[in-house]
Simulated assay, not measured.
Amino acid sequence: MCGRYSNSKSVTQIKKEYPFTVKNIIGESFNLAPSQPGYIITADEPEVIQAMHFGLVPFWAKDKKIGFSMINARSETLLEKSAFRPLVQKSKRCLVLADGFYEWEKAGKEKLPYRFVIPIRDLFSFAGLWSRWKDPTTGDPYETFTIITTAANDIVKPIHERMPVILSKSDEKLWLSKDLPIADILSLCDSYPADEMNKFRVSQDVNKVVNNHARLMEPVNSQ
């Protein structure tokens, strides 16, 4: 799974890699958790960076609470789940912008957090899906996204059996394409090459979602 990630880049830094219009500006996040806003790029507006809430709320949901159980979507069953199938078919696909993610190793009663990064890519994207829900009381729209996961590669597997689908630069355009067959789109949901990634232990302060500062991203043995 992928329940916590980061995008610590400023808007200026993001636009160096994705030179698009920013629709609604949010601050940097070093510990982005479910229900919090993160930057995405949708297939409907592929030249716009916008913020939506992490944790998918389908249009048919009764309330927003369901988003906490839909932070991830398994790539192998996207077309089997009623919450995800129409989003794949209707091109409600998106890029979730990130510069790293966290997973936890169980060590007795402790949960030891690890950070996973791609040293040669300061900013990259997860494959995602997005949806727009309307509050039944107020009619206000609430836009959300989920991160698609796949089998873990060799660097993630010792910590967790799943990992987010990380797209290469060339695959980002394909993921957002509305012209490719669904089978070709889903073929992009593969494990990212382990030899391009790095991992290291970070402070257990990241375990608490209220903590959101740059030190969370540092190796525990750094001075």
Rank of each mutant, 00 (worst) to 15 (best):
G100F: 00
I147T: 10
N198Q: 15
E80G: 06
K9Y: 05
D154N: 14
F126D: 03
S29A: 10
C189P: 01
V165Y: 00
S10K: 12
D154W: 04
D195F: 11
V202T: 08
A43D: 09
Y102N: 08
P158D: 07
D190T: 15
S82G: 07
A98N: 08
T42Y: 00
K65Q: 12
K134R: 14
K81A: 05
I41G: 00
L79M: 15
L79S: 10
D184I: 04
A73R: 04
S203E: 07
N212L: 04
G55I: 04
S10C: 10
Y39A: 01
N153E: 11
A151C: 08
W133F: 07
V88Y: 08
Y5D: 07
G128R: 00
Y102V: 08
A107K: 15
R132N: 11
K106T: 13
D195P: 00
I49E: 03
K23V: 12
A33K: 00
T149C: 06
L87P: 01
V117M: 07
G100T: 03
S35V: 11
P158N: 09
S91C: 12
P181E: 10
P141Y: 14
P46W: 01
K106V: 11
C189R: 02
F116I: 04
Q89D: 13
C2F: 03
D63A: 04
S8Q: 07
P193F: 09
R4Q: 05
I40M: 06
I155Y: 06
L188H: 03
K15H: 07
K90Q: 14
S203G: 12
F124V: 09
S170L: 13
S8C: 06
K23F: 07
E161H: 13
